[in-house]
């Protein structure tokens, strides 16, 4: 009897451990594969030169800068709107039908395939302005990041003890001032973490940029022009018939993965300092 129990126990533990191992295998496979293929194709020209004609030489300098521009554009729009909306939900309206609607909508929006956001922004901006643009790409990414910024920020604001707000009230500080100067700084590191993770998430988005930013073989000279980004380039290069471009797609993938990992690590470090301090 006793051995049977022990055996079953060991068996179950084996099953759980196996599942845990299987769960991390894809991550390491991806990292390993990208690293192996990407490193061999990565060179200085990749960072400094424009794409070569029809699969010869060149680099992705315009796409690297393009990614930074589009992501920055999306962050400038998405992060403030997300944080301010979260302040509304956490500090002004915790349970009305309207705040329930906002929360429900952002949860649904998180689950909507990002290509659909791309199509909607295409219809709303690209069709109307009659050209693809960096701006419309930024808008599409902002739409994708707003819900996650809202939810992360709201959760962090709710962690701020009620007694802190009461202390502000009791000092005769106006509510908006208490929120901006006391509550928000108390939750700042957690909010920063949430924002950085949202930035990391949109940095790799490809689908919403297909019909908005479009891509560009050259540098974009204004936000009203189509712009190249790393994920788009990876996509176009990977489906091209040229070996040289396939290699560059790997290099692009490596750079993109590197950017996303750095953002993730920075986000976690920022959060850890907060935990350590309190």
């Amino acid at each position: 009897m006793y051995t049977k129990r022990n055996l079953l126990n060991a068996l179950m533990m084996g099953v759980f451990s196996l599942a845990a191992v299987i769960a991390v295998v894809p991550l390491f496979a991806v990292l390993g594969y990208v690293l192996k293929n990407g490193l061999t194709s990565l060179n200085l020209a990749f960072f400094t030169e424009l794409p070569g004609m029809m699969g010869v030489g060149g680099g992705m300098a315009n796409a690297i800068i393009g990614t930074l521009i589009v992501v920055a554009l999306a962050s400038v729009m998405g992060i403030p709107i997300g944080i301010l909306a979260a302040i509304y939900l956490s500090e002004y309206d915790r349970r009305s039908w309207f705040s329930t609607l906002v929360r429900f909508t952002s949860d649904v929006l998180t689950g909507i395939p990002s290509i659909i956001v791309g199509i909607v922004v295409y219809a709303a901006i690209v069709v109307r302005t009659k050209h693809f643009s960096a701006f419309s790409g930024g808008v599409a990414l902002a739409v994708i990041m707003i819900p996650s910024v809202i939810r992360a920020t709201e959760e962090m604001l709710r962690l701020v003890p009620h007694t802190i707000r009461e202390a502000g009230d009791a000092l005769g500080i106006p509510k908006w001032r208490t929120i901006l100067s006391i509550v928000l700084p108390t939750a700042a590191k957690g909010i920063l973490t949430g924002a950085l993770l949202a930035v990391a998430r949109i940095s790799g988005e490809t689908a919403p940029l297909l019909f908005t930013a479009l891509g560009n073989l050259y540098y974009a000279h204004s936000l009203n022009e189509p712009i190249a980004t790393l994920p788009l380039n990876i996509y176009f290069y990977a489906i091209s018939p040229y070996d040289q471009w396939h290699k560059q797609a790997w290099a692009g993938a490596l750079v993109l993965v590197f950017i996303v990992i750095v953002l993730n690590v920075v986000a976690r470090l920022a959060f850890r300092t907060r935990m350590g301090k309190n």
Binding site: P161, G168, L171, G172, I182, T186
Partner: peptide
């Protein structure tokens, strides 16, 4: 008002805490 549990503002220094009521007004 002073509350049951001490509730200094965690993001502020000792000095900033004391002058918070003045500064934020």
């Amino acid at each position: 008002m002073v509350f049951q549990k001490p509730n200094p503002f965690p993001s502020m220094s000792i000095y900033e805490n004391v002058v918070a009521g003045l500064r934020l007004n």
